[in-house]
Nucleic acid binder design. Structure first.
Length: 425
RNA sequence: GGAGAGGUGGCCGAGUGGUCGAAGGCGCACGCCUGGAAAGCGUGUAUACUCCAAAAGGGUAUCGAGGGUUCGAAUCCCUCUCUCUCCGCCA
């Protein structure tokens, strides 16, 4: 959520930002609407405060009069207080109404894009920030997509998942399960070595938590919900991990706070069908290691670069061809100010698969989270950032496809200490 | 699931209707003292909104949450919620 005070003093910047997000003139009216309501709110608040101050003072005087036994004087003052109270009620409801309406409108306003965000409406308009310079692997016509490889080597099984749960819940087995575990450990170790503290969070969260990182209300339909206990299954570790710092005033010298966590991720996403969602390309449950940072506003973009370098390093070590995209205004997530997507080349499907999304949310998320720090006397919102490092299912898909040989599937060097086998055959 | 106890500031803890944003202690910060430190002494130490061009300084709200009684609520009443203890069940 944008800060109201920011909109108040940076109206033009907000409007420009929303234009990058392809807001029409009609949609842009929301800004004026918010500012008008803010005016109403502040006026009623000032009036209300004065009113309450007066009642308070009168009440104290009444107390004094009673002690002196001046009953009649006191009683007439009571009437005054009663009248003020009437007015206060009215003012309060007017204020409350404005506050609620502002909140509602504010929830509909996305984050202001960073100045480097390219204009555009769809994924086609994303900028290739870092291309893959080397030739892409060519496996020839016999290359099998990962779902065929899964059958051939019995490493994961989607049909069994259907039996147990439903479509989109893969069962990994044998070396497939080991590979999964190896990748998780590899990613966690890498993050730890890069200075991230490992967190093992709950996989279910309450309403407040889901709201603070922005999953509620905008993405309610994407989450699995346990009605009986009013809990949501997490769609990403970002949710519980970032919420660790909800309502916390951070000590400035602790910046940047760097956290990592492995969790399964649960996503309902009723999406498109066909080849794009086959196999592990899009599933309802997948494993992911997430990195999260809470940073000082002055250095959050440095930290973002550091996160890009970290994710790049992982893909380099796994020897996977990848490229980095800078998302355009139309494709960027609602809450993000700047997002880079990592895509890995899947050699049998011959297409790029998104495996990581690294974003700086600036204060958009921290405004709801109320993650703050002291800047002198002032309390300011911190910046939050996060990124996948990395999402497993698609990495597995690409590893299987790219590394297939007639003898079997080669395990990248760096993973061998983790899998403790060299080949899936 | 059953029974009971309890939620007060960063922490501990006092406060059962009147000027209480809240005693006291601890912690923390700064200063004095000291060769330096400790001790000691002094000062300060919540958050949000708001008024003011800003600073200084005001105002309002907040004692788990919401509602009620009252001129006046941390204190009384109601609802909800969370935590703890005991019992039951259980990886």
């Amino acid at each position: 959520m944008l800060e109201l005070s920011f909109i108040r003093s940076n109206k033009e910047r907000v409007i420009q930002g929303l234009k990058t997000r392809n807001f029409t003139d009609e949609n842009l009216k929301v800004v004026d609407e918010i500012l008008a309501l803010d005016e109403v709110r502040r006026n009623s608040q000032t009036e209300l405060d004065n009113n309450l101050a007066e009642s308070k003072q009168l009440s104290n005087e009444i107390g004094g009069l009673y002690k002196q036994g001046k009953r009649e004087e006191a009683d007439s003052m009571k009437e005054q207080v009663a009248r003020l109270k009437e007015q206060s009620k009215e003012l309060e409801s007017r204020m409350k109404e404005a506050v609620e309406k502002i909140e509602e409108l504010l929830l509909g306003v996305p984050n202001i894009p960073h100045e480097s965000v390219p204009v555009g409406t769809t994924a086609d308009d994303n900028e290739v920030f870092k291309a893959w310079e080397n030739p892409l692997p060519d496996l020839g016509p016999d290359a099998l997509p990962h779902w065929e490889l899964a059958k051939k080597y019995n490493i994961f099984d989607l049909d069994l998942g259907v039996k147990l749960t439903g479509s989109g819940f893969p069962v990994y087995r044998g070396k497939g399960a080991r590979l999964e575990r190896a990748l998780i450990n590899f990613f966690l170790d890498e993050a730890t070595n890069a200075g991230y503290e490992e967190i093992a969070p709950p996989l279910m969260v309450n309403h407040d938590t889901a709201k603070a990182t922005g999953q509620l209300p905008d993405k309610e339909g994407q989450m699995y919900y346990v009605e009986r206990d009013d809990l949501y299954l997490i769609p990403t570790a970002e949710v519980p991990v970032t919420n660790l710092y909800r309502d916390v005033i951070v000590d400035e010298k602790d910046f940047p706070i760097k956290l990592t966590g492995y969790t399964p991720c649960f996503r309902r996403e009723a999406g498109s069908y066909g080849a794009h969602v086959r196999g592990l390309n899009r599933v309802h449950q997948f494993d992911k290691v997430e990195i999260v940072q809470i940073a000082h506003p002055d250095s959050s973009y440095e930290q973002l670069n550091q996160m890009l370098a970290h994710v790049s390093g992982l893909l380099d070590k796994l020897e996977l061809p990848y490229r980095i995209l800078r998302l355009c205004g139309g494709d960027m997530g609602f809450t993000s100010a700047l997002t880079f997507d990592f895509e890995v080349w899947s050699a049998a499907q011959k297409r790029w698969l998104e495996v990581s999304s690294v974003s700086n949310f600036e204060t958009y998320q921290s405004n709801r989270l109320k993650v703050r720090f002291k800047d002198g006397k002032q309390t300011r919102l911190a910046h939050t950032l996060n990124g996948s490092a990395l999402a497993l299912a698609r990495i597995v898909a690409a590893l299987l496809e790219n590394n297939q040989t007639p003898e079997g599937i080669q395990i990248p060097e760096v993973l061998k200490p983790y899998t403790r086998f060299e080949m899936i055959d």
